[in-house]
Amino acid sequence: MASKSKVPPNEMSFLDHLEELRWHLIRSVLAVVIIGSVAFLMKDFIFDTILFGPKKMDFPTYRFFCKIGTFLGVDSDFCADELPFTIQSRLMAGQFSAHIWTSIWAGFIVGFPYVLYEMWKFISPGLHPNERKYSKGFIFTASLLFFLGALFGYYIVAPLTINFLGGYQVSQEVTNEFDLSDYVGKVRISVIACGLVFELPIIVYFLTKIGLVNPEILRKYRKISLVVILILAAVITPPDIISQVVVALPIFVLYQISIYISKRVLKSEAKREAKLAKERAKNKS
């Protein structure tokens, strides 16, 4: 029996588009599940090495800040022998549940480029041919920004948060014994939130393409954006000025890069429109 030929995107009905989206989502979920299954089997590495890494004082971030404190001649909490808290599981299914959900999120993080690829395959038929040819570059750039953000969250935001909250006490009578799900959640949100925040240039690129933002708007609201960035940094970091500046600085740099990207997009669009107008004028003559 002959296979059914693929319907051109401009001839597809709304239900056809939904069916197409469904299969892209199914393949994305399968990729996450497969990678998550591999992560599930790597329990010791995922938990002992990665998740509980920021709990140990030999973590690279702590050693780095300890050396800075030693160089400046000031006492630093980053030079302690161990963090003054323990992790426990108070639910019978707590450890198994943490294992399952951590594996799923690991599958999403590692499989992010493929998920992005599937989403791009769904929207790319609606783009112009000259825009579609940049798909590979888009996927690489968006994936690179996500992984850079994830690394920033893991090596900067997560250890700063854990070090501050893990050592914070209102009284010596109170000991810090954190639940496993709470600790894992702090590391997870630091990694994924920073990964998504680092996608700001990509978001601005598409918002500029559809006409919602432009360089003038981004420059006009730069001061307001700086305040929002500082508030965001205060939310995802401990309440000390050094941690907030460390987190806010790369986000503000990304905002500046986004202004440049928006400018380049408008310049490219203007060239394309001028070229089309020239071709139309030539055809009329």
Results as ranks from 00 to 15, higher is better:
residue 35 I to Y: 00
residue 216 E to T: 09
residue 117 Y to V: 10
residue 44 D to E: 15
residue 185 G to Y: 04
residue 218 L to A: 06
residue 60 P to F: 07
residue 196 L to F: 03
residue 105 W to F: 15
residue 133 K to N: 08
residue 144 L to D: 01
residue 129 P to D: 11
residue 176 N to I: 08
residue 223 K to D: 13
residue 37 S to W: 05
residue 205 Y to L: 15
residue 257 I to E: 01
residue 227 V to S: 08
residue 71 F to I: 03
residue 234 A to R: 01
residue 276 L to G: 01
residue 52 F to H: 06
residue 280 R to N: 03
residue 203 I to L: 08
residue 21 L to T: 00
residue 69 G to C: 04
residue 39 A to W: 04
residue 148 L to E: 09
residue 25 L to I: 15
residue 3 S to V: 14
residue 202 I to P: 01
residue 48 D to G: 15
residue 225 S to A: 08
residue 66 C to Q: 11
residue 260 Y to K: 11
residue 49 T to N: 11
residue 191 V to E: 04
residue 213 V to H: 02
residue 156 I to G: 07
residue 166 G to Y: 01
residue 55 K to L: 14
residue 41 L to W: 01
residue 244 Q to H: 09
residue 227 V to L: 14
residue 17 H to E: 10
residue 130 N to L: 11
residue 116 L to I: 01
residue 85 F to P: 01
residue 91 L to H: 00
residue 69 G to I: 12
residue 123 I to G: 01
residue 54 P to W: 01
residue 193 A to I: 08
residue 12 M to D: 02
residue 4 K to L: 12
residue 20 E to H: 00
residue 244 Q to M: 15
residue 144 L to V: 12
residue 183 Y to R: 02
residue 207 L to D: 05
residue 58 D to P: 10
residue 96 F to A: 14
residue 224 I to E: 12
residue 19 E to L: 03
residue 9 P to A: 09
residue 6 K to L: 15
residue 84 P to M: 02
residue 237 T to P: 08
residue 227 V to E: 06
residue 25 L to P: 06
residue 147 F to Y: 15
residue 168 Y to F: 13
residue 37 S to F: 00
residue 122 F to Q: 09
residue 280 R to M: 11
residue 122 F to S: 03
residue 72 L to D: 03
residue 152 F to M: 05
residue 267 K to R: 07
residue 189 I to V: 13
residue 22 R to N: 15
residue 96 F to C: 09
residue 221 Y to C: 05
residue 17 H to D: 05
residue 118 E to V: 08
residue 155 Y to C: 12
residue 167 G to Y: 02
residue 56 K to Q: 13
residue 218 L to E: 03
residue 239 P to S: 10
residue 189 I to K: 10
residue 153 G to E: 14
residue 279 E to M: 14
residue 5 S to R: 08
residue 237 T to L: 10
residue 30 L to M: 05
residue 204 V to E: 04
